[in-house]
Design a protein around this nucleic acid. Structure first.
Lengths: 179, 179
DNA sequence: ATCTTTTATTTCATTGATGAAATGTTTTCT
DNA sequence: AGAAAACATTTCATCAATGAAATAAAAGAT
């Protein structure tokens, strides 16, 4: 619960000191990656705190939002796993919970009967519509003082970073580039 | 384990569709906050994967790095809790594990004997020095294609975002502004 | 000198995530 | 038709994080 800014200051100093001992360290990049991690997890905490009153955690919320945002309000467990970065076991558990609360339904797929079709229910839609608007002021406040250009830049840079991260995880770790 | 870029594309479309139903939604800001969340957690996954071979998770690593980066190589449980965003219970557990591996030591504080002084050991320093350098290529690769100006901008924007997040969590949630 | 606060640990119960393996159904391949 | 692959669930075991409450030691306040 400590101040993010304070943590960042201390990270800056820490990296400064470490890089005097290990000068090959890419200092600017190390700082940036710590920044992304810190801001990301702080934002996640903030979001989780606001979801808790609705008895949802981030995974539940994401699952529900994906369904809500679909033109036909449905998806499959496999697809939901992919987009929520959850394992199949977890998704089954999440879906069980949401079904129990009447926010989604499960039924057999029509085209491919191996798949399960997960639909958001009217109650699920109502919940989303009720809980989203109160979040808007905070979302806007997060970017207070950002010009339109700032937002464009941040978006561009984060997307570029995402692209690089994709490259990284495709090619495995240090050992050797495949082929 | 899905492609980040693919997830981002689908998020873009999803927010586009949601905002036609709920037009008051701050679309650009919602996209940005999702971006930060997604990139942050992807980076975290990547990091955890590289720590695993050393039997460390993110919290362990952070704790160790804070100690390593301190001029005198020590801190207290309370301070470590603050900077790692961990509860006291967790920090005790983390410290126990690191002590057991001989990476840190605990001893009573001198000035204030309520505090426990946690020191990084020589073995702890060796571990850090062994594991950091192999990370550098990936850290650099993450920011491939970033100009110096790009890095400065990203740093500035993330810090501004951090500042706004601090404001947000100080003033509580929707109900009413205190005073 | 006593009362209160701070600091850390211990204990306990709970929750969420995680991963492996076995199962069952359906589709696809040949 | 029969073998193989895909999809989802179930079961099971485990681990990390979490939070509350009790405990203990030391410092600070009045």
């Amino acid at each position: 619960m400590a101040n993010l800014t304070k943590c960042i200051d201390m990270m800056d100093e820490g990296i400064g000191r470490v890089s005097t001992v290990i000068p090959q360290m890419p200092k600017a990049e190390a700082r940036l990656s710590r920044l992304v991690l810190m801001v990301g997890s702080s934002l996640e905490q903030e979001l989780e705190a606001r979801l808790k009153p609705h008895q949802l955690n981030h995974s539940d919320f994401l699952t529900l939002m994906i369904l809500y945002s679909r033109p036909d309000g449905h998806s499959t467990p496999g697809e939901l796993c992919e987009f929520t970065s959850q394992g199949a076991t977890n998704m089954t558990r999440i879906a069980n919970a949401l079904v129990k609360r009447g926010l989604i339904t499960r039924r057999a797929g029509e085209a491919d009967r191996r798949c399960v079709l997960i639909h958001i229910t009217a109650a699920g839609r109502r919940l989303v519509q009720k809980m989203l608007p109160p979040l808007f002021p905070s979302i806007s406040a997060m970017f207070a003082g950002f010009s339109e250009a700032d937002k464009r830049h941040l978006s561009r840079l984060l997307r570029k970073l995402a692209h690089n991260l994709d490259q990284l995880s495709e090619a495995p770790h240090p050992p050797r580039t495949p082929r």
